[in-house]
Amino acid sequence: IRCIGVSNRDFVEGMSGGTWVDVVLEHGGCVTVMAQDKPTVDIELVTTTVSNMAEVRSYCYEASISDMASDSRCPTQGEAYLDKQSDTQYVCKRTLVDRGWGNGCGLFGKGSLVTCAKFTCSKKMTGKSIQPENLEYRIMLSVHGSQHSGMIVNDTGYETDENRAKVEVTPNSPRAEATLGGFGSLGLDCEPRTGLDFSDLYYLTMNNKHWLVHKEWFHDIPLPWHAGADTGTPHWNNKEALVEFKDAHAKRQTVVVLGSQEGAVHTALAGALEAEMDGAKGKLFSGHLKCRLKMDKLRLKGVSYSLCTAAFTFTKVPAETLHGTVTVEVQYAGTDGPCKIPVQMAVDMQTLTPVGRLITANPVITESTENSKMMLELDPPFGDSYIVIGVGDKKITHHWHRSGSTIGKAFEATVRGAKRMAVLGDTAWDFGSVGGVFNSLGKGIHQIFGAAFKSLFGGMSWFSQILIGTLLVWLGLNTKNGSISLTCLALGGVMIFLSTAVSA
């Protein structure tokens, strides 16, 4: 259960009878995928790494000078000259100064003066180019299975845990398959586009800190620079940016070097996208990844198990997540596992009318040892309800109150669905055939309105939902006002479609 501690969480529900669903994975976010007769899966884009970055340009932001020398000439005696002028490691300046009897010249006039100092770069920052084909995306998957609280967001041991898996995709191999043991396998067909235009970005490294910066900004930095990788004795261009020549006297000129420019660069980098280094690879934390999940090989585990009949206890007080759902960790005293956990939410304890829904599909106890633990997640209705676990006299209950409203949740879900469709863009549509167009249209309606429909009408039977949709269509056909007619027709059509397409 990876997503319960992530604030940016998206719930995606598969269409009834569908074998695939489109998701948008982004750094700092987590996606929970639910479908009829399929286990619930949490998917998170953990890291995006980039390798084989080529150094484009380096800037010196802290330097020192040494070996200063000057040469001067009297008027009419030609130009002052130093051998160091031809050495690229030196920074030199030529000027004219007033000369006369007082400073060793027989004539009054302008004399030539040249001053040089050896330039040494102490600290530099480097910009590297990123090729999209060198990106690698690491995705962690977790099935809502027989897990306890100690396994949440624990990325170790996934090789031997059938509840978890790690997959890596690249532009050259965008397809992967996550093996989930008894739950089958989940196929991923990803489109490795981060949403960032790397043709316009460089990877900047300064003092063990890293950013993504725009090329134009990078090339306009007014500091000494050299092109390409460091060859040991780089040729620094624009050395004068960190060196200041003071007022010249008759035979000498003082040279000083400016202080470190790291603070000024940090100020200019305010708002830039931060990154990290992992050995020789860069780690990015921006952008998104679009994936199509193929769920035809994914299956529920323990459908044929019998119900657990022994007593359950709450190991922890049920807690609310950031998303309005409830996490419950229970301990089973029996030894008759594997068995299914009898769990439901009810409005009252007399009729036990089921409300809400299970995020953890078909929760089971897989071990036959005593005191096995299991964590599950529920989506309670707004208002008061009861969490009921167990059967008969051994069942345990917990009162729950959820604040908020169904309308607010439906609106929030619609906005999130619209954002998801905007990110998917043209990849969500198939114009290759008439059937493809209608299929894409259905998927689009489901992406945007599916979660809201589930919130508003999830407790009704599909037949009642179709009746309401048919009534809206009838009202649309018999209303003389054009805008009201079109609105009723659209709402009725969407409702009829979703009542037959969205899983219960």
Rank of each mutant, 00 (worst) to 15 (best):
R2P: 02
I4S: 07
G5F: 05
N8P: 00
D10G: 06
F11Y: 11
M15K: 05
M15N: 06
G18T: 00
L25D: 07
E26N: 04
V31Q: 04
V33N: 07
M34Q: 08
Q36M: 14
V41Q: 03
I43G: 02
L45K: 08
T47Y: 11
T48A: 15
V50Y: 03
N52L: 00
M53P: 00
A54S: 01
A54C: 05
E55I: 02
E55R: 02
E62Y: 11
S64N: 15
D67M: 11
R73I: 07
A80D: 01
Y81P: 02
K84Q: 14
S86C: 01
T88K: 11
R94W: 12
R99V: 06
R99S: 09
G100H: 06
C105F: 11
S112P: 00
T115E: 08
C116Y: 13
C116W: 08
T120V: 13
T120R: 14
T120N: 13
K128T: 11
K128S: 04
K128V: 00
P132T: 05
E133S: 03
N134D: 12
M140I: 05
S146Y: 01
S149V: 14
S149H: 09
S149W: 15
I152E: 03
I152Y: 15
Y158A: 11
T160C: 09
N163H: 14
E168S: 14
T170Q: 06
P174Y: 09
L180C: 10
S185W: 02
L186W: 08
R193L: 01
T194R: 15
D197K: 07
S199K: 01
L204R: 07
M206A: 03
N208P: 03
K215E: 11
K215F: 02
K215T: 09
W225L: 04
H226T: 11
N238V: 06
K239D: 06
E240N: 15
A241D: 05
E244K: 10
K251L: 00
R252G: 04
Q253Y: 10
T254W: 06
V256E: 15
L258E: 05
G271T: 10
G271M: 11
L273A: 05
D278L: 11
D278A: 14
G279C: 01
A280W: 11
K283G: 03
L289R: 00
C291W: 03
C291I: 04
L293P: 09
M295N: 11
L300K: 05
G302H: 04
C308E: 07
A311S: 10
V317T: 04
A333M: 07
T335P: 13
P338W: 10
C339A: 02
P342R: 06
V343F: 04
Q344C: 09
M345W: 00
A346S: 07
A346F: 12
A346G: 15
V347Y: 10
L352H: 15
P354G: 13
G356P: 03
A361T: 13
P363M: 10
V364D: 00
I365N: 11
T366V: 07
S368E: 00
T369L: 09
S372W: 05
S372M: 10
M374Q: 03
D379R: 00
D379E: 05
P381K: 04
F382R: 03
D384N: 15
V391H: 14
K395W: 06
T397S: 15
W400E: 09
H401V: 03
R402M: 04
I407Y: 08
T414A: 12
R416T: 08
K419C: 12
R420V: 03
G432P: 01
G435D: 00
L441A: 03
L441W: 09
K443G: 04
K443L: 13
F449W: 13
F449R: 04
G450Y: 09
A451V: 15
K454M: 13
G458Q: 15
G458N: 11
G459T: 02
F463M: 12
I468K: 00
L475M: 14
L475H: 07
T479C: 05
S483I: 07
L486S: 01
L486Q: 05
C488N: 01
C488V: 00
L491M: 13
G492T: 01
V494I: 13
I496Q: 07
I496S: 00
I496G: 00
A501L: 01
V502M: 13
